[in-house]
Amino acid sequence: MSAQTTITAVAYLALSAHLEAAYPHEGAGLLLGKADRIDRAITSVLTLPNRWDDAEQYHRFLLTPQDMLAGEHEAARRGLDVIGIFHSHPDHPAEPSGFDRDWALPWYVYTISRVSDGRLDHTRAWRLRDDRTGYTEDTFSIIGQPQRTP
């Protein structure tokens, strides 16, 4: 059975809004919540600006070490941990690319959302294997009802 990643509906709304606003560029940010030995529970997100060069943001994102430090502080302030990273693949599959893998860390959960024509289509959750050869996919589910107008 695969590991589970859950996200609260409120956090998922914030994630969606950030990624849709970033379209046609990639958007990104930090996933805050709690991790147990296997599963990850996202209760809040920290939206961050994409620091990659403008011209390449259609297929790249970057969060700097300063962003990560600030994220750790903010997570601590909220009594949470940074448990992963979210980002979008505009008009591309919600699957990790080779470039994603080169830059990935173990333990973190990486959610990738496909944004098509400016609307978030779906999200999948991934974790890097220990030997860095690939990913395993988590079961990803949203807790509660999203309060979203069509």
Binding site: P24, P65, M68, H87, H92, S97
Partner: peptide, 17 residues
């Protein structure tokens, strides 16, 4: 040790809005 995080899709072509 502070990680920076990067990633992105395999989109090959530049896109223009």
């Amino acid at each position: 040790i502070v990680p920076s995080i990067a990633g992105g899709s395999d989109a090959p072509l530049v896109k223009v809005d």
